[in-house]
Design a protein around this nucleic acid. Structure first.
Lengths: 345, 345
DNA sequence: ATAAGTTGCTTAATCGTTTAAACAAAATAT
DNA sequence: ATATTTTGTTTAAACGATTAAGCAACTTAT
């Protein structure tokens, strides 16, 4: 049995497709459809289990009620969860989301962008990856609505929803200092992305404002692609250095996971051998024998707000830019608990 | 600048849209388009950065090159990863995937199904949830192509790609027995789903075949929705029971995570206080101080094969049913290492 | 009784493609 | 010189919906 179309209903009811369309779209009043025939049409539509063809609607209206969500790395549970929030929030508003992960490759991101543009998505929510500035410019030029999520480019004027990474790192640094640690390192991705730069900057300012001299050997920047091996080397180095660290901040979930595995192998104890604060998502860190202190980003809010911004923009394209930085919250746990003082030790 | 359409190109080139369509679809030979004009058309298309409108194409052809992927629970990393594999494999074949998670609710699954049917997806890949049999029947009746993934209903004839759960659990049981454990419990979801039933059945047969008497208190079935609290109670019970277990099998990732958190709180040592084997995904288990033995499902193969089956079905709808059970692999690690024997203890 | 307004419906264009069929002009065959 | 074939192009219908405009047939007002 083929799918029923407006035409099928019209034929069975002995009327034109226009009437059927009016009735099924609840426009009977404005368009003065007879009560009797309206009932009949509704009846037949139900019998035939009529489902409107979304393609045809979209082609006509120019709106697909579809959002493209491009995510830098879906295997990161933080992003996976954000994707979920975005999807839920969009569905509440009658939108469908098509998700794509570019795995931190600008090229893949271009592909995704084009596929989704061809599919006529109404707009985009994008977690940008390194080197994707041109894509953002492209969207601006083509006047395609979009909102940047979690990561943004300060030198490009766009809508965005992100975390105040500077503040989050600053807080993480201060927290460690207040807990008695003084040789604090940070591991981040080698990247010019603003969010990453900010995470390092916040950390350095926390040291500076607390009169701790920063040592170059404390900053470890590793490449995303070769993270597995580079993290190990980096850990080796910060531990072997003359200025051996007693605490580490991990700027991403992936770095923390890899580092923790290695730290386990080395049989180092957290926090006595090394205190830890990490960005990232909570559940996994709970599993660790010593719960990990982490920077809790307002995941739900980030996702919801991004959808909200985009939908507003779709309704009213002329509205001004919306930009928001949300505050993260440091969840202090055992991995950064106060260092026993010389006196008590 | 509005998007360029076939018409725009046709106008600029001074020809009909038909010619443009022929040329841009590489049908110049069959349809005998002049070489000169063909060049011109290609040139103009490039200049205008022509991107075909997928909606219009789909409306005309009846094919959207879109697959609906309905997943029981996207927050489970196993499924998140399967989703990724499906997406990649589909993209390789020119298909786009729309993912939806029903969070183990049949009702939500119905919604998703309808939304995606309206959007004219060409077919479905579905990780079914409890109580969704009627949906499967519906798809069959309406002749909508689909493949069940990871979970299936033995009483309904469908295509499916799944793991041999019976065998996997059997192996897990035997492994524990061979490692010297004899009081082995299992924690599963309270469910009539075949995959879950099979996981329990395999475990019981492993005991039976090794002459270990099964005790009712060893089987703990908890509800998905209230897992957090029920897991704790269950753990308390298996430990307090007269037949206190010395090993546990967790039938899902979520159960294991929750149980491990609680086991940590109780300061129990794995495996000396309790040995563990779990279904689920690897990375997280690595973080545990004692790496967790787990059942490694052929994730990549499952996803790829599901896509393959579906695409074949889309090409040739009349082809016979394809059903496959893939073998899982037990990855033995410290959480189930051989128990010190009485002699050596 | 005629003009004006209301009611209930149909017609036809449109969105951007594809593609069978028709057609004219040029080339080849008879 | 006429018939046939080949070549290069256009026309128009179709996919499934929406919607402005048009058109009868009534009803009401004057």
């Amino acid at each position: 049995m083929k799918k029923a179309s407006l035409k099928d209903i019209a034929q069975q009811a002995g009327v034109s497709t226009a009437l059927v369309s009016y009735v099924l779209n609840g426009k009977e009043k404005e368009t003065r459809v007879g009560e009797v025939i309206a009932q009949k049409i509704r009846q037949i539509a139900k019998e035939l289990n009529y489902q409107p063809n979304h393609l045809a609607k979209s082609l006509r209206s120019g709106k697909t009620y579809t959002i493209g969500l491009i995510i830098a790395d879906i295997s990161n549970p933080f992003f996976a969860n954000i994707a979920r929030v975005v999807e839920d929030e969009a569905k509440k508003n009658g939108y469908t989301v098509i998700i794509g992960s570019c795995d931190e490759h600008a090229e893949k991101s271009w592909d995704l962008l084009n596929v989704l543009i061809n599919r006529q998505v109404d707009g985009f929510i994008i977690v940008s990856c390194e080197g994707s500035e041109s894509q953002v410019h492209y969207l601006k030029e083509r006047n395609i609505p979009f909102v940047l999520l979690d990561r943004h480019f300060p030198e490009i004027q766009t809508d965005f929803v992100a975390t105040n990474n500077y503040k989050a790192s600053y807080d993480a640094g201060v927290h460690l200092i207040n807990s008695g640690y003084s040789k604090i390192g940070i591991m981040a991705y080698k990247s010019n992305m603003y969010h990453m730069v900010e995470r390092v900057r916040g950390y350095r300012h926390a040291l500076r404002d607390n009169h701790i001299e920063f040592h170059d050997s404390w900053l470890k920047e590793v490449h995303f692609e070769t993270m597995d091996s580079e993290v190990r080397t980096a850990i080796d180095e910060v531990l072997a250095s003359e200025q051996r660290v007693d605490a580490m901040i991990f700027a991403t979930y992936g770095l923390a996971i890899n580092a923790l595995k290695y730290i386990n192998e080395l049989r180092l104890k957290v926090p006595s051998d090394l205190a830890i604060v990490s960005y990232g998502q909570a559940e996994v860190f709970d599993l660790y024998y010593c719960p990990i202190t982490y920077v809790q980003q307002p995941l739900e809010m980030l996702g919801k707000t991004a959808v909200e911004f985009l939908l507003e923009k779709l309704k009213n394209p002329e509205e001004g830019m919306k930009q928001i930085l949300m505050e993260a919250k440091l969840i202090a746990r055992d991995s950064s608990k106060a260092k026993p003082t010389a006196a008590s030790a």
